[in-house]
């Protein structure tokens, strides 16, 4: 059970959070996005071993999404910050 530092609420137990996966840029406009680019956006993830950037939502708390860096090998939480801003 991770101890996750919500940028708004402080450290809270993992069960209060929802995992949102790797942040991926949404390719637009639709007319200029190839099928392959779109499939890449929808389905393909790097799934890095080691430090990994993810988005999480404090769904059982403040309801806010944030960016978290986590080591997928050691499970160590490396950092958490508000989207587009500082921790």
């Amino acid at each position: 059970m991770l101890l996750i530092p919500c940028p708004w609420c402080g450290p809270r137990d993992e069960p209060e959070f929802s995992f949102g996966g790797e942040p991926v840029a949404r390719p637009v406009p639709a007319e200029r996005v190839s099928d392959a680019e779109w499939a890449d956006y929808l389905y393909f993830r790097d799934n890095d071993k080691g430090p990994h950037t993810e988005i999480w939502c404090h769904s059982g708390g403040c309801g806010q999404w944030f960016v978290m860096e986590r080591d997928t090998l050691t499970h160590a939480v490396l950092s958490a910050r508000k989207p587009g801003g500082a921790a």
Binding site: M1, L2, L3, D13, E14, H75, V77
Partner: peptide
Amino acid sequence: FGAYDDGS
């Protein structure tokens, strides 16, 4: 019975 993440 179990050791989990972050000292839990």
